[in-house]
Write a protein that binds this DNA or RNA. Structure first.
Lengths: 201, 201
DNA sequence: ACCATAACGGGACGGTGTTACGGAACCGGA
DNA sequence: TCCGGTTCCGTAACACCGTCCCGTTATGGT
């Protein structure tokens, strides 16, 4: 018997990108709390069910935002030029990390601080997230190879920098902390101190 | 005409602590998403309006949890004994910081990662939060005074440690990141490298 | 042209935080 | 002892949320 070929999906790409655009606008303007399917559907001049047709669910839509955020992140970090001095390179990466986070702070909190409650990235998105940090791993790896940094596993040093950068950035972005604390003043010195601490002595 | 004195408030303290107990249980067991007023009221065998009588709103109830969390935090950090060696003391504080966070990870994410969307701490709670970090400020301040640490403003060095600790802890607690990354292995080395980087050379 | 199926709109369901209302418990004063 | 004002909290409603069912439309291979 003949089984009819299912009709190929002709995802309305225009609607898809319009939803993503409006979603990131809504997110950037009013935060994760304001990103509701009804508001989003109204902004994109469609219905809530379009999200289910095109993405599957709200978390899946957020997943698309998340992936897009990491693609931007990746591009920024990858475009940092290398000087050959491991300490200087790490500091530059750190500054680019902060610039990226501040450029779209709401998205950063979705990416790293669980700002959308139900959301968990799928495997592909997680892989994207890890790939974005490759420049850091590379710089640290080279620094160890050229004996500029201590001879400990790459991950330990790289995670040290990542933690330091992420910590200060997320404290800076945290709107519940008192405004008088000036985290940005400590950012570069902190990264630099961390790097100096990893110098091969 | 005589205006009667208002009847003194007879806050049902038992109900109040029962609500807070059940709330922290719910939070610890199933996370911020599961902490709803209806579930909480059912668990405490009362109604949702009791929360409004006793706390004012859901954010206000979370505020009470938040304050309690920082009181625990404060107690833990304050009980760290000093050795006189600034680097060692900072490392000890860092480890206590992580222990506290891991001991009640859901509460930590409420305290530092905006896990409850609508919540913002009131002034009193914010003050409590800042006070909890005083041991760090003290240790760093002493380290600068004894010329063990570089002669830069206390806040810069203290925030550097805070950022590093908070960053690695929140990455470790972040459930959306791949499990294979072992943040705890890098924790103490990272704090130590940071401290060494701040040594007066 | 047919028609299975994808895409989408309307509306319903169960959940959320919040609030208006009403009864019960309380307590100072008569 | 009772009264009247006050506070507490339970019921029920409101507006909103994410999700899903169902009916309709649009599409494209046969």
């Amino acid at each position: 018997m003949v089984i009819d070929m299912p009709r190929p999906r002709t995802h309305d790409e225009a609607l898809r990108v319009r939803l993503l655009d409006r979603a990131s606008e809504l997110l950037a303007a009013e935060g994760a709390k304001a990103l509701s399917l009804r508001r989003l559907a109204a902004a994109a001049e469609t219905s809530t069910t379009a999200v289910y047709s095109l993405f599957g669910s709200k978390p899946d839509l957020v997943n698309a935002l998340y992936s897009e955020g990491f693609r931007h992140f990746d591009r920024r970090l990858r475009s940092v030029s290398r000087t050959g001095d491991a300490v200087e390179d790490v500091v530059r990466l750190g500054l680019a990390y902060r610039d990226s986070a501040l450029a779209d702070r709401r998205l950063y909190s979705v990416m790293f601080s669980n700002a959308v409650p139900g959301f968990e990235p799928n495997d592909e998105a997680s892989k994207l997230a890890m790939d974005a940090l490759r420049p850091l791993w590379d710089v640290v790896s080279d620094g160890i190879a050229t004996k500029a940094l201590a001879d400990v596993p790459v991950e330990v040093i790289a995670m040290s920098f990542w933690g330091c950068a992420h910590g200060l950035v997320s404290l800076e972005l945290n709107e519940t902390l008192p405004r008088e604390i000036n985290f940005c003043r400590a950012y570069e010195p902190a990264i630099r101190a961390n790097a100096n601490g990893w110098r091969r002595s």
